[in-house]
């Protein structure tokens, strides 16, 4: 008991000490979980003296909801995916970066400059890009996995042992690929089919969880699960015998972007951080950590050579196309929201 108390007192003393450190500036970052190595933040602080505070979220939608509920104006930067950049833009949540404000803007890889969700990169810079699909524990199921049937019409070995991402956009997009219908369909038959497909498949799913998408595969709680490509290579590193699938029906492609939020309390620090992330060496450190791909020129010399050879980075010849998630209009979205609620009821 005495020791415990000592520990607690020590904990308090330490926290007081930690907060006493004066900062030359602050930066408040709203970021995905497990997506930013602490060393990169420490390096930024060492270079600029700016202290970084980071909050994390587990889905684009959760981030948007939180900003809408009053958090806008308290964060400087967020890291939405492609489609969410468009949504945030239309919601007026993004600040415009004037010409010349970002010194390293020229480092953005040419193919990622004029992107549909932010033409000319007015408010965003590339963070990482990759794919979302699913992987299967090969100890449990040895059969064919390059098909979305694994999720929506699973073989007996996998039934009841599948984890889905708790993300409406990712699940409905993959289900649409499975059915071969557009993502923002207004065709009633297609929407009904989508609804029925998800209702039927739900019986085979164990859980909806994005945060533990990797953990459930590593621990064996799930035998198959939707997952991001880099997350899957981490799962393999942690000992799971999981194979990432590039289904013939297609898979989800995405790019996460660092955006400058409207009313950012530390706008200058935010721009400095964006410049910092456009340095090939820094963004490469993140790529090496997260095992995705950077959208900056000149990163290759800093990248871990093993990364390029990973199976998650090399779709097989029969793989379908990678498609970006689309933004639907309000009326169409209402139907998809209803389908999602039906699914989770």
């Amino acid at each position: 008991m005495k020791n415990l108390m000592k520990t607690s007192v020590a904990a308090l003393a330490l926290t007081v000490g930690a907060n006493a450190a004066a900062a030359e500036g602050n930066l408040v970052l709203y970021h995905w979980f497990e997506y930013m190595p602490q060393e990169v933040l420490d390096k930024f602080t060492a270079e600029t003296g700016i202290e970084v505070t980071m909050d994390t979220y587990d889905s684009n939608e959760a981030m948007l909801a939180s900003l809408k509920a009053g958090a806008i104006g308290t964060y400087d930067l967020a890291v939405p995916s492609d489609y969410m950049v468009s949504i945030m833009g239309s919601e007026g949540m993004l600040d415009t970066i004037a010409d010349g404000e970002l010194h390293n803007k020229g480092n953005i890889a040419p193919e990622w400059v004029d992107v549909s969700f932010d033409p000319g990169r007015q408010s965003s810079i590339p963070y990482q890009w990759g794919s979302t699909s699913f992987s299967v524990n090969r100890d449990v199921y040895a059969g064919e996995i390059q098909t979305t049937d694994i999720l929506f019409n699973p073989p007996a070995e996998l039934q009841g042992r599948i984890n889905m991402l708790d993300s409406q956009g990712d699940v409905t997009a993959l289900a649409s690929l499975h059915l071969g219908i557009p993502q923002c369909s207004s065709d009633r038959e297609q929407l009904k089919a989508l609804n029925d497909l998800l209702q039927g498949a739900k019986a085979h799913w164990a859980s909806f969880n994005s945060d533990t998408a990797k953990e459930v595969l590593v621990s064996g709680d799930a035998a198959a699960g939707m997952i991001y490509d880099g997350f899957n290579s981490k799962a393999r590193e942690e000992g799971a015998n999981v194979e990432y699938a590039f289904p013939t029906q297609g898979y989800i492609a995405w790019m996460d972007n660092v955006v400058l939020l409207k009313d950012a309390p530390n706008r200058d620090s935010a721009l400095k951080f964006m410049d910092f992330l456009l340095e090939p060496e820094n963004i490469a450190a993140i790529t090496n950590y997260a095992a995705y791909n950077a959208g900056v020129t000149g990163v290759s010399e800093f990248l871990d050579p093993a990364l390029a050879a990973q199976p998650e980075k090399n779709p097989h010849a029969d793989a379908g196309n990678g498609v970006f998630i689309q933004v639907c209009d309000e009326a169409t979205q209402a139907v998809y929201d209803q389908i999602w609620t039906n699914l989770k009821k």
Partner: peptide, 22 residues
């Protein structure tokens, strides 16, 4: 419960912090 089935608490939370935004 694996967030598979909504209960009231999760239904309400979803409206403010999750997908639904209603």
């Amino acid at each position: 419960g694996g967030a598979k089935n909504f209960m009231i608490g999760s239904l309400i939370e979803e409206q403010f912090k999750g997908n639904a935004g209603n």
